[in-house]
Design a binder for these strands. Structure first.
Lengths: 330, 330
DNA sequence: CTGTTAGCGCATTCAG
DNA sequence: CTGAATGCGCTAACAG
């Protein structure tokens, strides 16, 4: 069913049908009526591709997420999609997978679909390959990174100061009398390295010697992974007093490990996660966590992208501040 | 940058460029070389909309999810997207929101984008309005529902027998010596009503009188909501011995409520959730749960949709069997 | 082996 | 107020 089919049956020209569809003025009432009846009769819906072709605009926004199973990323995507959908854009979100070349390739796919704006979710997109792909394929399309940044004229970033946030966590633990601390990295994302940097800075500021700044890295970012690494840490360093994890999901595995080993939290061991996710509210004791304010981050990202879509200024770098939510594990 | 721009600079016709792009045979090696060099030079990527228009095919698959924040739905979407992307389709997933008219409207949006296949995630799409919208807008496009079904010639459903699954949960609790049981409904989806039905059937089969089949419904599907309703249940029925929740997320709220009220799990109170989600592994004690095998469900859904995309048979109804994973809460 | 022509479905001139 | 003609970027059929 095309406008021509409708036009023929209505005994008018295709352009008239087009005018009716787009509510253009200057159509006789009866003609408009007649056409509209037919449109309804055949459940006619214009082809977005054809319309986009002639209008030179797709009204499409791409949201790229490395892994849509990661809770805090879908939370963000939800907020952003809501806002942009309200503004008349059609948000298509896609999972790229962790491989760098695939992430870059999805930039190409977005060019192919002629998106008018892009959201990049998470610091995992802060890579050379992605940067090059943007330069190649989407050098003029407004792009906003959530918790990440790339130095390109059309890319904006909304980031949270997780480094100083983690430093504050270190301070909190010291204030609670815990000074022998470890840091657990769940995956090698730029954001996580920033967190680790904050940990090291905090420890140094407290006069801890370099060899007593304990850093651990895990194989798999999961509850089980958090469990395993925590057991290992407790074996290697029986006198440890506190652990900071890059992500709640992994920290709750640590809570369980402590429980199974008969180590009381927070008395003997204090635990802190990051993200202020639902996981931290489930476990017993409830997890102290660094709130990186993803909700606010996402809203800002949506706003900045909207401005970009409307042709306003680009390439902002917005910084937000994280804060500790102290619960039962410290 | 269009094929015409490339063609002009290469001194050939547009169709030649098109042939090179699509690896058509019968092009002189040098010509192909010359064109390819230019394609690379300008990072040329064909416009999917224009190509789709003339090829009468979009290679687009739509995945509709009511709320992308719901973990088990994104888990499913992840699996399906992986499979279909591997087959050369471009998956666009969108969050519809809970309102019935919005869900129906997204069917229209998918028609507008001329998708070639659709995944509907969850039983929430099992509504009159969605059914009508499919009849109106996508009567010929293969559609697969994950854990749901609509009786339409182009719609297939992969569903899990959660009703008999819940009945098995009832049996388990009776086997553990628990006979005074309650059922908690977290939201009014068809799947949840099926679960409740299974609960009632199971109770009746054990000779429980109708007035002793306790059913509760909550306002908000969340950990806190599960906490609140559990406190309420324990107040109203101090002698209760077991609770089955429609979803793990809510059940873990119940675990916490029991903990705070000093009620030992599972000795005095047994708790069961549904979904076999990560939440159940986090809480202490670990949650016994009904595994509805979403992974398998999703893989089957992807396979069926793929067959539909390839023009094979449609409108299957595939049933899978859930099974109890007993952990520490029963 | 390559160029010319036509048309996918639509919106937008420009005439009338 | 409406129709005919044109072109968006691309592929395919047909010539040559």
């Amino acid at each position: 069913m095309t406008i021509y089919d409708i036009a023929r049956e209505a005994g008018v020209a295709a352009s008239t049908v087009s005018r009716v569809i787009n509510n253009r003025p200057g159509i006789k009432k009866e003609t408009r009526q007649k056409v509209q009846t037919l449109l309804k009769k055949y459940n006619y819906i214009p082809d977005a591709a054809a319309r986009g072709l002639v209008m030179q605009s797709s009204r499409l926004v791409g949201i790229l997420i490395v892994d849509i199973r990661v809770a805090h990323h879908t939370e963000s995507a939800f907020v952003i999609e809501q806002e942009l959908t309200r503004r008349g854009y059609c948000c298509i979100t896609m999972g790229t997978g962790p491989r760098d070349e695939d992430k870059a390739d999805y930039i190409r796919i977005l060019e192919q679909r002629r998106v008018e704006g892009v959201i990049l979710m998470g610091s995992m997109f802060e890579t050379e390959a992605v940067q090059e792909s943007i330069k190649k394929h989407l050098p003029r399309v407004p792009i906003v990174m959530v918790n990440g940044y790339l130095d390109l004229p059309n890319v904006s970033g909304v980031i949270v100061d997780e480094d100083t946030g983690v430093e504050k966590c270190v301070n909190l633990l010291f204030a609670r009398g815990k000074s022998r601390l470890a840091f657990v990295l769940d995956s090698r994302s730029p954001a996580n390295f920033r967190k680790q940097q904050g940990f090291c800075d905090g420890m140094r500021r407290h006069g801890v010697k370099e060899e007593d700044i304990w850093k651990y890295e895990m194989k798999e970012s999961s509850v089980q992974g958090g469990y395993d690494i925590t057991v290992q840490i407790l074996r290697e360093r029986p006198d440890i007093q506190g652990i900071i994890y890059t992500i709640d999901l992994v920290a709750v595995g640590g809570v369980r490990a402590a429980y199974d080993m008969g180590i009381s939290v927070p008395d003997r061991l204090a635990l802190i996660g990051i993200d202020n996710s639902i996981y931290g509210e489930i476990c017993i004791p409830k997890l102290t966590t660094l709130d990186n304010r993803l909700q606010d981050l996402s809203e800002s990202a949506a706003t900045i992208l909207r401005e970009g879509l409307e042709g306003k200024v680009q390439s902002k770098k917005l910084m937000m501040f994280s804060e500790i939510i102290e619960r039962e594990s410290t």
